[in-house]
Design a protein around this nucleic acid. Structure first.
Lengths: 195, 195, 195, 195
DNA sequence: GATGAATGAGTATTCATTCAT
DNA sequence: GATGAATGAATACTCATTCAT
């Protein structure tokens, strides 16, 4: 994330605008977002994009890294919240809310490009697992749920909503509510074992 | 679906191979799947693809129609099953299972090409709503769930699993289990109202 | 023109319909006329087109040959008409009139495919030259005009008219009138010598 | 014609080479000239063609505009020449001479793409009509000739010559001579009235 | 003999990436 | 350092021609 040596002021400004623009374009058009559009939205030249990120894939990885990093930070903060169940819910809400701007699908596609990214992903995973364990200990969620389950399911509400044209902006909360109720211990049925 | 007049034997074989190959390629590469790759996978020439389907969009619509049609059929059958709750779960399992080869995202993208497709989509929606209503009357699922919720959520398990590299082939069952538990009346919390 | 051995009745019918359709399609769309459209217009299958003419070029040559042959016939008949000047004008009118269905541009593009075509072209040239010589002897046209001039200029009126969208169907007569007046001896200026 | 702001040196060079190559390829192969061939002839990449002109049609329009603009300029200049008949002949000679590289057929095919083109075409028409009127007043050409006649007929010599393989490069002068004699008042016959 | 399904080379156009300015 | 012009591989689609039915 922090580059090897400090950037010149204008370069830093460009890098920031670039990441923001890329995040928005990727959110709007998926992986098909064109470098030209990203550059235009950032108000810089196409060549400058490639000066900052040698390929489009690396740019994508940087955008994803930004997201993951923010989520990992939040997850660590919530570890000290008083109500573990509420903390987990709050985390999932925050994740879904931010994600609306950038489908975490990209998590899937941005692997192998950047070691830092893999590290940050691990940190996120660790923090979420801790959140989940606390919630389980508090009896807020059923015991057969793992951190990975939460990571995976927190992506679902936005994905689900993406099928609805002109969806109200907080429709995702409905699906997060349902899914979170599925995580609760009340009325839980044993989950199928997976081969 | 069934073409106007019977196809020549080779044409029928090609059409079948083409739909299968298209389904697989679209599943693997999304809408970016190239016609050339589809043709190669089907073992036919590029031109033959266009003889059967005048544009890539129409081909996509045909693939999607195949899926939707099968699902609608199943949903109608399950309307007469003895246990309404089990029937709904079975439907969602079948949907998720078939969908593993073709992300229903395509539901979203293949509109407007084919009237038959729109009709079949409506039929699917009607049948699912009936399934849901029966399950609600039987007390198998909470009363604030709609047919649309089910349609949307039944897409989630596969999406969720798509983030897992080398996932076991039935991992999706785990997430369907969790989500279905979220649909149950036990321990249900009121869902957030949506603006 | 006459094929090596007599065709079966249906084949002959097809061949005739094919030549007619090809003539019309070439007239309407130029060399870009598609074999599929020609076949459709003739009411026969595409494969049958290729049974009669091994390539599109050969089909074109056959169409052109038909035209040339008809013109050559007419030119020979007019050699015995009483007024040589009127005969030449009549020939040019007939040529332009028929040509409206098939731009003789094809004369240019259909060479080298068919010996018979080259022969017939020669016959046409001979007959026209004779028509011109008679007209010159009668003082109806200026002496520095050759048969080739007439061949070339008789194509011009239709070409000229092709630039006019929605041209009245006999606009070409206006331009043939002007050009023919240019062939007359009255007011003729010496033509530039050509290197 | 002159672009909005000065092009970089290399871009200007490319643009010029591109227009030249396009003009030649269109002349040689008509509208079927391929963009790839044009690019190759210009010595630039295919993509560069599309940077300069967003579609093939626009490129064609640019080529045609170049021609028309030059002709309109010349026509306006000749309006002040001392001998109106000679001025008209000179104009037609120039038109035919330039046209040898680009059949004005394109006048017909490049419409609707470019407003400037339509305007320039109108200017050309106005100037030619003025040239013709002056020549009529001077008695150099017959009174029943219009500006449109001249526009149409000035295309004819090159078309006529295009049928002659290996034609001497100034053969068109011969046919322009004949046609121009047809425009003269001496020996003019009434033109057929057109429905 | 006739048909039309299959083929694949060819076309216009896009876009990530490189490089001259 | 920044720019945007140039590049060419890739893509959807067409059509003359071949060949199984």
């Amino acid at each position: 994330m922090t580059p090897d040596r400090p950037l010149r002021a204008d370069a830093a400004r460009n890098r920031y605008a670039l990441l923001k623009a890329a995040s928005e374009e990727f959110a709007a058009h998926g992986l098909d977002a064109s470098v030209a559009d990203i550059a235009r939205r950032a108000g810089i030249g196409k060549g400058t994009v490639f000066r900052h990120f040698p390929t489009k894939d690396v740019l994508l990885a940087a955008v994803v890294l930004d997201r993951i990093d923010g989520l990992a930070l939040l997850a660590r903060e919530l570890l000290t919240a008083p109500d573990p169940g509420a903390a987990l819910l709050e985390f999932m809400e925050a994740a879904a809310g931010r994600q609306r701007q950038l489908d975490l699908s990209f998590l899937r596609d941005a692997g192998g490009v950047n070691d830092l990214l893999d590290d940050t992903r691990s940190e996120l995973f660790t923090a979420i697992t801790a959140l989940v364990d606390r919630a389980k200990e508090a009896g807020a969620i059923r015991p057969d749920i793992t951190g990975m389950d939460v990571i995976l399911l927190m992506c679902a509400p936005n994905h689900v909503v993406s099928f609805v044209p002109d969806a109200p902006p907080d429709l995702w909360r409905r699906y997060l509510g349902i899914i979170f109720d599925g995580l609760r211990p009340e009325g839980a049925r044993p989950l199928p074992s997976v081969s």
